[in-house]
Design a protein around this nucleic acid. Structure first.
Lengths: 216, 216
DNA sequence: ACAAAAGTGTTGGTCGTACACCCATGC
DNA sequence: GCATGGGTGTACGACCAACACTTTTGT
């Protein structure tokens, strides 16, 4: 049972890793995870582990990724590992243990076991879902300006994008909605930005049929 | 370890189920599945089980669906079940044991345990992937006419669709390609149909970014 | 007044659907 | 020739990207 907890930190998409102090794979970086009690469900086990071991309580979204069954995943014994993808909003600052660090996904250190496969799968999944669901809510603060959201999406997707079209796409799909509030500009001036929020804070598919749509 | 094996039979999307002769859930219909040996990988276990127990050797595509961990899934013991989605082309006719039957997914009998959840997940996954991948290759014969493909897709998606646009979408994306062959018309005449084939017989994503595309 | 930042209008292109029309065959 | 089924051409709308232009602020 593993969790790939991702969040945008300092403008970069990061994943939570801890440094192993013991063999096997001592010194390498591993995903948080552990065993599952016979009375626990997987989701429950993940949630509890994140809260107690790494003090991450504000996972805005959690979904199952995949189960790996390679026989020699762990040299000690046969371990079936089910991984979850967890997302933490960019404005929450969990207090992490000293061996646990946010690592940018485009500059990963050597990871333990087969954990880099899970990270790759998580990044692909997140990037894909950003384009056809409202999953962005789990990365963003409750309120934000378009500029902030543009930087957030840019960091998560790995490329720059324009604020204009981002606004239009997300509002047309009713993913985000303006609030009456607006932000005050910085020292250098500029027009105050409208404050937006996500319309829903649960995962919904916003673009269900790319093609081969059913007849109206 | 469970498999949701699906195929189009007699113009309907079907799933392979076997009737339980023993308690628990005697008389209900269950997905093929079984335990995993400590030396087996999941995919291997699924493949072997399908070949030996239900004589299904021609699974054209197999992908992992999800792992369920409900504590009371099986009243006998805590069982973690990882389900796979398998697809069988419509022209192969595996010899099934007498307790095993293809059931249309839109008219399911009472299923054992929580197997209907897996079936629902498999159907959703298949339908979604039909619109943005070339997964149709796993349902279709090696060669086919557009009319046959239209019926196949219609059965899988659950609604009628037009041959014209199906052709255009799939050829534009280079999912299918015409062959030099053409089919001879039936008794009632009609123009001979061009025979098509799938360009690739491995899963590829054909429509990766619906929106928020990276700049060219 | 000017720079900075946000927001709007407009255009052009791609893609998917609908539907009318043309083509090839059996009887 | 005519019915039958396959294939093509065209028009329309939805959607998205690019970019110029306007609005609102601070200094």
């Amino acid at each position: 049972m593993l969790s790939v907890v991702m969040s945008v930190r300092d403008g970069r998409l990061c994943v939570l890793l801890w440094k192993r102090a013991q063999n096997p794979h001592r010194g390498r970086w591993a995903l948080p995870g552990g065993g599952v009690e016979p009375t626990q469900r997987l989701r429950e086990a993940i949630t509890r582990h994140l809260a107690t071991k790494v003090d991450v309580r504000d996972v805005a979204h959690l979904e199952q990724l995949a189960t790996h069954s390679a026989i020699d995943r762990d040299p000690r014994a046969r371990v079936l590992a089910t991984a979850y993808l967890g997302l933490v909003p960019s404005d929450v600052q969990p207090v992490l243990p000293s061996d646990t660090v946010w690592h940018p996904v485009d500059d990963l250190p050597q990871t333990a076991f087969d954990h880099h496969f899970f990270i790759e799968a998580a990044v692909s999944r997140l990037r894909a879902k950003l384009s056809y669901t409202n999953i962005g809510f789990a990365l963003a603060p409750h309120e934000f300006t378009i500029a902030e959201l543009r930087d957030l999406f840019g960091a998560a997707l790995g490329y720059e994008l324009g604020a204009t079209n981002l606004t239009r796409v997300l509002t047309r799909r009713h993913v985000i909605a303006p609030t009456p509030r607006r932000s005050s500009p910085g020292q250098s001036g500029g027009r105050p930005a409208t404050v937006y929020k996500f319309a829903a804070r649960e995962l919904t598919v916003t673009d269900p049929f790319a093609v081969l749509r059913p007849p109206r």
